[in-house]
Design a protein around this nucleic acid. Sequence first.
DNA 1: TATTTATCCTATAGGTTAACTAGGAAAAGC
DNA 2: GCTTTTCCTAGTTAACCTATAGGATAAATA
Lengths: 141, 141
Amino acid sequence: MLSKKTKYGLKALAYLALHEENAPIQIQEIAEAENISRKFLESILLTLKKNGFLGSKKGKGGGYYMIRPASEIPMTAIMRVLEGPIAMVPCVSLNYYETCDDCPDEATCSVHHLMIQVRDSALDVYRNNTLADIIRITVPE
Amino acid sequence: MLSKKTKYGLKALAYLALHEENAPIQIQEIAEAENISRKFLESILLTLKKNGFLGSKKGKGGGYYMIRPASEIPMTAIMRVLEGPIAMVPCVSLNYYETCDDCPDEATCSVHHLMIQVRDSALDVYRNNTLADIIRITVPE
DNA sequence: TATTTATCCTATAGGTTAACTAGGAAAAGC
DNA sequence: GCTTTTCCTAGTTAACCTATAGGATAAATA
């Protein structure tokens, strides 16, 4: 299941990328436009900023803004920051690898091999989409 | 993240399918072979039975056994019973569809479209694998 | 300089779910 | 009728998710 955090984060990024006219956009505005709890969104945008996806300005006229073009942000990067590992099992995770304590041998583990396939297919999708790609859908022409 | 329930369930099914010589296999044996808590596995096997994947026999010489060939059990069916929906968001689920209360329009939702792609790629994997396929890996030749 | 506006930061409450565990009922075999 | 096994209900514990509170910090402006 996709967490609300990820869902809200994606929507906020999409909103910011669509309104990419230099002027910062306030949390409040995004929260209202996308039906997200203001305080919750606040914490999400903060982690997106800390991870280099967004810039911010404090004070009047402040807010958040895209720091680089949406077309240069692969969905893999966003998903890893918001949702965590793309793999469903740590033993097939590229960035968060961990051995299974119950499993004697990965090479002969049927779950392992299936989950590698699932991971690769998800990676395929995320690698072939940038933030710009998922926005483009909302603006058909 | 894949739940332990699913992971254990898959391992148990793999074990049973590999030892498909008519004689029932006891929970205890599977639990020991696969390093699974006996009581927990008990409840998992029970739901697999209730969902038509396994048969059982009580009393001495009892246990669980495959009810149909592993090659006829698609991974989609197993995953849906053990893990639930394959989709990461209810609004793109084929079998457990629900509307998002915060989202005014699916057609213009960027998350929606991305998640459809992810769902389809996962479905692709699960549809192209049966239980027999994931076991085959453990027996290379 | 004082005030307003906005993000930044820490802590925590409340609910849900996952991962087990306990204990016995029911059925099958000897 | 005793043993062995699955069947069933309920409970426990810990982690995590979602959201909120309240103030610190910084920027703009008057």
